[in-house]
Design a protein around this nucleic acid. Sequence first.
DNA 1: CGTATTATCTCGTCCAGCGAGATACTCGAT
DNA 2: ATCGAGTATCTCGCTGGACGAGATAATACG
Lengths: 149, 149
Amino acid sequence: MPSQGPEREIVHLLRAVTVELGLHSARFAQRNAMHPTDVRALIALMDASRAGEEMTAGRLGAELGLNSAGTTSLIDRLERAGHVRRVRGREDRRKVVVEVDERAVELGQAFFGPLIGRAVELLQAYDEGERAAIRGFLTGVREAAAEGT
Amino acid sequence: MPSQGPEREIVHLLRAVTVELGLHSARFAQRNAMHPTDVRALIALMDASRAGEEMTAGRLGAELGLNSAGTTSLIDRLERAGHVRRVRGREDRRKVVVEVDERAVELGQAFFGPLIGRAVELLQAYDEGERAAIRGFLTGVREAAAEGT
DNA sequence: CGTATTATCTCGTCCAGCGAGATACTCGAT
DNA sequence: ATCGAGTATCTCGCTGGACGAGATAATACG
């Protein structure tokens, strides 16, 4: 039972990283009087905007695993705090497109920027083969986790 | 703004992995009628027991970021579900030692085992230098995230 | 046009977690 | 011994995030 191989140690380490990143997000949330879900929502919104996609209320809720009622109150909350704007879709006017406020983006970058920068620094110290290994491992784990049994 | 370096892509990938692992845990939680916090608690308890340490109510609450009231109701919930036992500390009888039930451990292993096994497989395909790179990167990120500004 | 479908919102409810304070035990000082 | 301070956990009342059911509004299709 004890003394597992070096592979298990790394798996354990990965889990520790996810825990630590979660706590980091929680600190951001608390500092800005937000809930974990709000932070997840902002991240999803920024991802979408970076990918040049519009994020509607429904899609956002689906990605976060909320039902429609929860999604509405989430957007209400974010809008009340000024982090987000509701814009009725012009093509399909049933839809509500959610746009992130510029200041919320800056807030997030100010908080997460240093950590991202540090990670980039770490990666620059490795050669292309090593980076490929890191990329391959992470990709594999992501796919394994995504295949929800 | 677009077309960032290969380093940023990996950072993005790491975040995607944490999201996916979070969703995986959430599936486990939902399937066993538990809340995310309950799963986090069980993991903390199993970690402690693997490390040969006793986990008290207070320490558990502190690790999860709950106050005493929340911790009590968490343990109530887990005990009601039979995942956990309360044992009064014999040395200091104010303390409540929380022990994980054997069946809860098996439940967790059955669910997370395959994913862990897959990750170990992935790692075995790399040579020692590549594994060192993966380990180093993850360690660096964990430390960077832990230094909460 | 009317019916089905889709997107979002409203209402009532439940329960995880919080703050405040009660209770139970330990330990050091008198 | 016993008193008081400190510590660990629990109880009570409440807030607010999220859910289920159903209402409302806009689109699509016959």
